[in-house]
């Protein structure tokens, strides 16, 4: 079944097509959820909510742009919604000056497995983790992040740099 057929089936409400779509994209989207929400049970809730929105709103997908990108956008948005609702992001700014600048050891990062890198990201304070995810992994620009999170561009940049410093320190501690 091609992606077009899968989408067409889902638009008609075909349950088999919906299940196939879920099975195709859910492992990767679970990875996205776990990066934004470090608690597995919460990540499952976000994943479920995200797929319900995807399946019930699939008519909104116009066909232009990558389908996976569209799905990812909704999942990320659901994760952000969860974080906002639970008001667990505001403590991030308090941590801004906690860490000193650390050196960069790209080779050490390259040697770490994806699971180990995931663990490092999950251990970041929520605010830093979110900006790092959005900028470094999802590829949003600081301008976009500032608009989406209602913060200034410089704050976004600063949050990202802080997040990176923490990660570098953690990596150096592992080696």
């Amino acid at each position: 079944m091609t992606e077009e057929q899968l989408i067409a089936g889902c638009k008609k409400g075909n349950r088999l097509a919906q299940k196939k779509l879920y099975e195709t994209y859910s492992p990767k989207m679970m990875g996205v959820c776990l990066r934004y929400v470090n608690d597995r049970e919460t990540a499952r809730d976000v994943l479920q909510d995200g797929f319900i929105k995807i399946l019930t709103g699939i008519d909104a997908y116009s066909g232009t742009g990558a389908f996976e990108g569209w799905i990812r956008k909704i999942i990320v948005n659901c994760a952000l919604e969860y974080l906002r609702k639970n008001d667990i992001l505001r403590d991030a700014s308090d941590l801004e000056n906690t860490y000193d600048a650390a050196y960069s050891d790209n080779q050490a990062v390259a040697n770490l497995s994806a699971a180990e890198l995931m663990k490092l990201i999950q251990d970041l304070p929520t605010g830093f983790r979110t900006v790092f995810n959005m900028f470094a992994i999802e590829g949003y620009s600081h301008k976009e992040i500032s608009e989406m999170l209602q913060i200034t561009e410089s704050t976004s940049r600063s949050q990202f740099i802080r997040a990176k410093q923490i990660l570098q320190r953690k990596v150096s501690e592992l080696y």
């Binding site: 299940k19 879920y22 099975e23 859910s26 492992p27 990767k28 679970m30 990875g31 959820c33 776990l34 990066r35 990540a43 499952r44 994943l47 479920q48 797929f51 319900i52 399946l55 960069s104 790209n106 990062v109 390259a110 770490l112 497995s113 994806a114 890198l117 995931m118 990201i121 790092f132 900028f135 470094a136 992994i137 590829g139 990176k164 990660l167 570098q168």
Partner: peptide
């Protein structure tokens, strides 16, 4: 460093629970 994170984590897959689909 973020490029390394991106290359390893963008397509990172995590296991889901069979119950998730039933809940959906």
């Amino acid at each position: 460093i973020e490029d390394l994170f991106r290359s390893k984590l963008y397509d990172f897959e995590a296991e889901t629970s069979p119950d998730d689909w039933n809940a959906i």
